[in-house]
Design a protein around this nucleic acid. Structure first.
Length: 436
RNA sequence: GGCGACAUACCCAAGUUGGUAAGGGACGGCUCUGCAAAAGCUCCAUUCCCCGGUUCGAGUCCGGGUGUCGCCUCCA
């Protein structure tokens, strides 16, 4: 072995093994606050993913949609890396109150009051509107959509288990989870329990701990709720958090591989899901927790449904943008970073998609497969970028560079199709733009 | 007030374990048409909020400062 071998070493084993290592999927796990290699436990045939879905009391705004795009890219990346995926998303159509203190209004009833419809009509209307958004954004349908109101019995059963194991107590308005009996309660969100206790603003009411939450709420005595069910504890409705645990475990088993949601869910919702699920089963609830960061608005407008004004996909379409413009916009940044939304930025994305399509459309007719070493290299780069905690921004850069590369059209065509299985920009078929 | 995040060109944005700033859009220039547009080509950060420090070498590490934002109320 000569010293001059350094050149050939570059193409031999040390780097090849490094390449294999690098092509391993890596995801940021909120539970550990670090990027970890992802793989499936022995004997598990499919990746079990549960994503917190919409509360269907209003339209989804573009911030919500950003999270679903992130989850879609995750799903597509797992498929791209050869995994089978069992993906469950819930539709919250009952029990989500406007406050985590278990004292606010029911969002569904609020939606009904606003629109003059029944809660069931409201749920159906916004569920359909949500599905329409999902389709327009080219988001893959989950393996299963599940509605909270279709799983009332499962939720009651889960509360019963918690009751039998001594994790619950009764107050005048419901059955509560006693977070004081789950020592690891604060760990996931790294909560400062003492600080919460000291916080003057929290009105505990009959709760034993500030972090306790309702598992089952009793219907008010003075009026009849539109949605209520009998239970061993009295007529009422399930608390918001219990639905996710009940449905996730029913459809995916006691332990999930990945649980997703928006970053706002870390502190309360997911912390509560972990507490109630792990207390019920004695097993870890999710191996990976992945959270999408918020979209931010440049100035005055707030991404808050509560404020009454927010941007929906429909609004963007009415302004002449194509849903894929928004998808590309979302893909330009990393899902764990804030993304600043402005119409100037969206214009950028639109122009960017136009010029991208100018390069890829002529390739549409060219069939072919990825054969040459050079093409395989581009594929490996893309695969590594997207597998590195979903670095879509980098992946987009690779797409652009690849298109400039000197490769035969049939290979470029094959690569575009290949990349688009993850990007989901619809580059594999023509796109018509109605607006100017 | 408490806790936390972020700060890269006109805009969006990537940047593994420090090794000498991806990509996209806009703008400008050029080519071809030429009324214009379209299209193609090309240019575009000696520099990463500021000040110190460690280092042969820092956007990347450490300390301090400034700024923006978020959470502690509802939000994906």
């Amino acid at each position: 072995m000569f010293a001059s071998d350094s050149w050939s070493e570059t193409f031999q084993s040390p780097n090849f093994s490094k390449f294999l290592e690098m092509s391993q999927l890596r995801f940021y796990n909120t539970a550990s606050r670090s990027v970890e290699p992802f793989s499936l436990p022995e004997g598990v045939p499919a990746v079990r993913i549960y994503c917190c879905g919409p509360t269907v009391y209003h339209y989804a705004h573009i911030g919500n949609l950003r999270t679903y795009i992130f989850e879609d890219v995750l799903r597509r990346t797992l498929l791209y890396h050869g995994y089978t995926v069992k993906h469950v998303v819930n539709i919250t159509d009952v029990g989500h109150l406007t406050s985590d203190e278990d004292s606010g209004e029911d969002k569904m009833e609020k939606g009904a009051a606003r629109t003059g419809k029944t809660v069931w009509e409201v749920a159906d209307f916004y569920t359909q509107a949500f599905f329409a958004d999902i389709r327009r954004l080219n988001i893959l349908e989950p393996s299963l959509w599940c509605k909270a109101t279709d799983h009332i019995q499962e939720q009651i059963d889960l509360v019963k288990i918690l009751e039998e194991k001594g994790f619950t107590y009764r107050t005048s308005d419901g059955i509560y989870f006693d977070s004081g009996k789950f020592p690891r309660y604060a760990d996931f969100a790294r909560l400062d329990i003492q600080g919460l206790r000291d916080g003057v603003r929290i009105d505990m009411g009959e709760k034993r701990n500030p972090t306790d939450f309702a598992l089952w709420k009793f219907s008010p005595t003075d009026k009849k709720r539109a949605m209520e069910w009998p239970s061993p504890w009295g007529v009422g409705f399930p608390g918001w958090h219990i639905e996710c645990s009940a449905m996730a475990m029913k459809h995916l088993g006691p332990t999930l591989d990945i649980h997703c949601g928006g970053s706002d869910h870390i502190r309360v919702h997911h912390t509560n899901e972990i507490a109630q699920s792990e207390c019920a089963t004695g097993q870890p609830f999710a191996r990976f927790w992945m959270h999408g960061e918020f979209l931010r608005l440049g100035d005055s407008a707030k991404m808050s449904k509560s404020s009454g004004e927010f941007l929906t996909l429909d609004v963007l379409v009415r302004k002449g943008y194509h849903p894929m413009d928004y998808r590309l916009f979302a893909l330009t940044s990393h899902y764990r970073n804030y993304l600043n939304f402005s119409f100037e930025a969206l214009d950028n994305a639109r122009e960017s998609l136009k010029s991208l399509r100018k390069k890829t459309d002529p390739l549409l007719g060219a069939g072919g497969s990825i054969g040459s070493a050079k093409a395989k290299e581009w594929q490996a780069k893309f695969r590594e970028a997207v597998g590195d905690d979903l670095n879509t921004s980098k992946a987009l850069g690779i797409l652009n560079l690849m298109l400039k590369e000197n490769l035969p059209d049939y290979e470029k065509s094959a690569l575009v199709r290949d990349f688009d299985t993850v990007l989901g920009l619809g580059l594999d078929k023509p796109m018509e733009r109605t607006a100017p």
